[in-house]
Nucleic acid binder design. Structure first.
Length: 885
RNA sequence: GGGUCGUUAACUCAGAGGUAGAGUGCUUCCUUGACGCGGAAGAAGCCACAAGUUCGAAUCUUGUACGACCCACCA
């Protein structure tokens, strides 16, 4: 029995995928080859958060990496794709706090140590789940090197980097204005704040001038902060206010005497041109406060309630309650001049969407300017390349305007800041090892800083911390700098930028050569997928229903690099159909391989169709390889789709059938088997990075297969297998077949009727071609009697015709033909061709065109005109015949 | 206020200085020995608008409109 006949006619991924993943893993195929004579190819996986499960964005990101990894591995590179997960400080802690809350507990009930144990349990559970999901996707990453941002090695790297930067003076601690999330109870960095426009008001407040009846009117969107005002600013050139500069106002409700000063920051056009200044609760005011030595009065507590500094009347009120109360009191005191509607941007916590409160607070910072400079340079000089290139500017713009990075977080889950304070002498100790005694006073009363580091501080070290840095490991020497970083454009600032400066600063080298940025996965309506909209799609659901190959392929096909992708079930279904098509093509080949023996036929000995499909295969090998090199994965996938479905299945397999079922000689049957097998095998290789499972499954049925497709060599184009002439000739054959099929359809000639066709072609070579390959036309167009000649004395009257540029085709239809219908058909075509002739003639008469256009374009235009002329003549002749009747 | 991307067939999207492409949908036909998750044939587009560059523009340039996103301290 033939190999393929016991295979199901519908492909079932569920039966296949898990099996091969386990096999690959067990065979250690995901590990680097270790062949140091070959160039290395390495990618570190953007570590998913251990907060929950993978979404479609991860699926896309990892599919792209897996395609690149599998492709390079097949090319023979010493390939490493290193997986891992991220502890995701705020996010994970919040999730665990939620689960505690469900039990009626808070983290304080447990205490720091117990709480951390709880998170570690969570990490184990969800970390494993993520590993599982990545496996289901088919990710060929090296699990033996899997890392976690808080494992021992990564933690050591974090500590090393912190101490180094501290010692270099690039990390400092101080009271500065930061963004405070009143819900998460921690400082967050500037980029963790998301701005959203909101409708608010602009309140105009009268501040009385000290020892005067005059008022100064200020405008504010946040009246409650006036309780912390320590000055009023006006523009130095604002003549309305020059006489007031240097004087004082009496702060309403509070009674504090605060100075009026001039600062160029003030915009004269906005509001009243006078700004109330609250250094403790506004970043600009903070800056002005520094410039003018203003006092800083923090009027809020960590949960954004007013504190005692706000005065007894307000202490304990929530910031919004306080706002209402302040307005009420100001109005009562006659200080509220007017209220205007006003739209402005409000900062929200990226994690919990709470409105962020700018606050002065004692925190740790990284000094960014010295780190940013080389990080910009390496990108400008091309040592790191962004793909698509447009993201280079996004990166550089951000880096050029970067501000110091607030890295301390008031959380428990994360890397504890390696700084100790001596309780006796106040010495600050920053150390690689936990200190036991104070180096200056020998006291053992040392207390470690309570805070942990921003999660991104450890993520920033990922490309080298995972390879064993700070030790000089084999992996560091072999795989660093990594080849490419693949990630979404949403974390260019959070992560990519920080890896770049961290890599350069700590290893002296860039962390990766290329950055491949992809877009986001949107829902079918083009919206971002989000929890609040409930429009997310679980990749596992897609895998269960359609298989990982289908998910992978549908996400990347026909997608432009860097652009967003809409997720559509329609497209998934179509891709599932494609998988089924591949499956059945393979089934067909396998079912007909009986008696197969490998033959090495010389190209010139092969029939036209064989030379054609082998030539097309060579072209695909070149194209796909080039497209992969350019990160044009979507286009590469599309070309594979077209080649397999249109050319291999719809043409070559159809042409192979008679040769398999009714071979003219036994040699030809073996030849066609060989070609089918070759094309199928090579196609499976080319497709393997995109659809690893189905291709492996098919490969394992192929005669003479090796241990696994995933360790096969990537196809190399063989120029001697590319016969350009066969491509042209096949084009003609296909055109004739299509023309006859067209006639069949138009005249409702049922499939059963074998028709008679007369074909004339002025070129004897064309006649020869069709005489030699008439079988193609007979088989695919169901022609019973095919005559091919240079010329016939009298064209048949009772016949439908098709006029091609190189031939005329007549289908005699005695008695069946509807003359009126045929005449109108011909006339319609005549009209089209007249239009075409007019267009080409106009071009050819244009002297500028003849003078300036490249010769090949002119030649093409000429032959087009000639062909059109020939066709027109034929049409006229036909019309004449019918009209003479 | 800056910036990026998009605007191509009914829908979702590719493409690209030299006669407009795919998938889905639509129309007609086909139980042809891989596949109806299939095959054959078809209908369907002034490639957003305007100016410019060019022998030639859907493609390049500059504007405009609309949409999406990113950045930004106008209180």
């Amino acid at each position: 029995m033939a190999i393929g006949s016991n295979l199901a006619s519908v492909y079932d991924p569920a039966q296949v995928e898990g099996k091969w993943y386990d096999y690959w893993k067990q065979q250690n195929y995901f590990l680097p080859s270790g062949d140091l004579s070959q160039p290395h190819y390495s990618i570190v996986m953007p570590p998913p958060n251990v907060t929950g499960q993978l979404h479609l964005g991860h699926a896309l990101d990892n599919t792209l990496q897996d395609i690149l990894t599998r492709w390079r591995r097949m090319q023979g590179y010493n390939t490493l794709w290193l997986p891992g997960t991220d502890h995701a400080g705020i996010a994970t802690q919040a999730r665990v706090e939620e689960s505690l809350a469900a039990e009626g507990l808070s983290k304080y009930d447990l205490g720091r140590e117990k709480f951390l144990e709880r998170i570690w349990e969570w990490k184990r559970l969800y970390g494993d789940r993520i590993t599982q999901q990545l496996s289901l996707l088919g990710s060929s990453c090296d699990w033996s090197r899997e890392r976690f941002t808080m494992d021992e090695g990564c933690s050591r790297a974090v500590r090393e980097v912190f101490v180094r930067l501290y010692e270099k003076g690039l990390i400092y601690r101080g009271d500065y204005i930061i963004n405070w999330c009143p819900r998460c109870h921690t400082a967050i960095s500037d980029i963790e704040v998301e701005h959203a426009d909101s409708d608010g008001h602009l309140w105009h407040l009268k501040y009385p001038i000290q020892d005067s009846d005059e008022f100064l009117v200020v405008a504010t969107t946040r009246p409650e902060t006036m309780l912390g005002d320590t000055g009023v600013a006006v523009h130095p050139d604002d003549e309305r206010y020059t006489h007031l500069v240097g004087k004082y106002v009496v702060l309403p409700l509070v009674g504090r005497i605060i100075p009026i000063f001039a600062d160029a920051y003030v915009d004269r056009e906005f509001g009243t041109g006078a700004v109330k200044v609250t250094p403790a609760h506004d970043p600009n005011d903070f800056e002005m406060g520094l410039r003018h030595n203003l006092e800083s009065v923090n009027v809020m507590s960590p949960d954004a309630r007013m504190n005692e500094n706000a005065g007894a009347a307000y202490a304990g009120l929530d910031r919004y309650e306080a706002r209402l109360q302040v307005i009420k009191d100001l109005e009562a005191g006659g200080y509220l001049l007017k209220t205007e509607d006003h739209q402005h941007a409000l900062g929200h916590c990226q994690r919990c969407d709470t409105v962020v409160e700018p606050m002065v607070s004692l925190q740790w910072f990284v000094k960014m300017k010295p780190l940013a400079e080389p990080a910009i340079e390496k990108v400008v000089n091309g040592e790191i390349k962004f793909i698509p290139e447009r993201f280079t500017r996004v990166y550089i713009n951000w880096m050029e305007n970067i501000r110091d990075w607030c890295i301390s977080r008031q959380l428990w889950w994360g890397h504890r800041i390696p700084v100790w304070y001596c309780q006796d002498c106040g010495e600050i100790i920053c150390s690689r090892e936990d200190p036991t005694v104070c180096p200056s006073c020998a006291s053992s009363q040392l207390q470690q800083d309570e805070d942990v580091l921003d999660t991104w501080f450890s993520s920033a070290l990922w490309p080298f911390s995972t390879l064993g840095w700070p030790d000089d490991t084999d992996d560091m020497r072999t795989f660093y700098p990594t080849s490419v970083l693949v990630t979404g454009r949403d974390i260019i600032f959070f992560w990519v930028a920080r890896m770049i400066f961290s890599g350069i600063e700590n290893t002296g080298q860039v962390p990766f050569r290329e950055v491949n940025i992809h877009g986001l996965i949107l829902d079918a309506l083009g919206r971002k997928m989000s929890k609040s909209l409930g429009n997310g799609v679980d990749p596992l659901e897609v895998i269960e229903k359609y298989g990982a190959d289908t998910l992978r392929f549908s996400m990347i096909t026909g997608v432009t690099p860097g652009n967003d992708v809409r997720f559509q079930w329609d497209k998934v279904e179509n891709t599932r159909n494609f998988a089924n098509k591949i499956w059945n093509a393979a089934r067909f080949v396998l079912m007909n391989l009986e008696g197969y023996t490998p033959v090495d036929a010389a190209p010139e000995e092969l029939p036209l169709a064989d030379r054609w499909i082998l030539g097309r295969l060579q072209q695909k090998i070149t194209e796909i390889t080039e497209l992969l090199e350019a990160y044009e994965l979507g286009e590469a996938a599309r070309r594979m789709y077209d080649f397999i479905w249109d050319e291999f299945c719809d043409w070559y397999i159809e042409l192979s059938k008679p040769r398999l079922f009714n071979p003219s000689n036994s040699r030809d049957r073996v030849v066609v088997q060989n070609v089918l097998n070759t094309v199928l095998t090579e196609t499976m290789k080319l497709l393997h990075p995109f659809m690893p499972f189905i291709t492996e499954e098919i490969y394992q049925y192929l005669p003479g297969h090796g241990p696994a497709l995933m360790v096969e060599r990537w196809p190399q184009a063989a120029p001697d297998r590319l016969d350009p002439r066969s491509l042209e000739q096949m084009q003609m054959v296909m055109a004739v077949i299509r023309a006859i099929r067209n006639i069949r359809a138009e005249f409702n000639l049922s499939h059963g009727t074998a028709i008679k066709v007369i074909m004339t072609a002025p070129d004897p070579d064309v006649v020869g071609l069709f005489q030699a390959n008439g079988a193609y036309v007979r088989d695919l167009a169901r022609v019973g009697d095919l005559t091919v000649v240079e010329k016939i004395e009298k064209t048949p009257r009772q016949a439908v015709s098709a006029l091609l540029s190189f031939a005329q085709i007549y289908v005699p239809l005695e008695g069946v033909i509807d003359v009126g219908k045929e005449v109108s058909r011909l006339e319609k075509e005549l009209k089209n061709i007249d239009q075409e002739i007019a267009k080409t003639e106009a071009k050819l008469k244009n002297e500028k065109f003849l003078a300036k256009a490249p010769p090949e374009v002119i030649t093409k235009e000429r032959s087009r005109a000639d062909e059109a002329g020939t066709r027109r003549e034929g049409l006229l002749q036909r019309l004449q015949i019918f009209k003479a009747q």
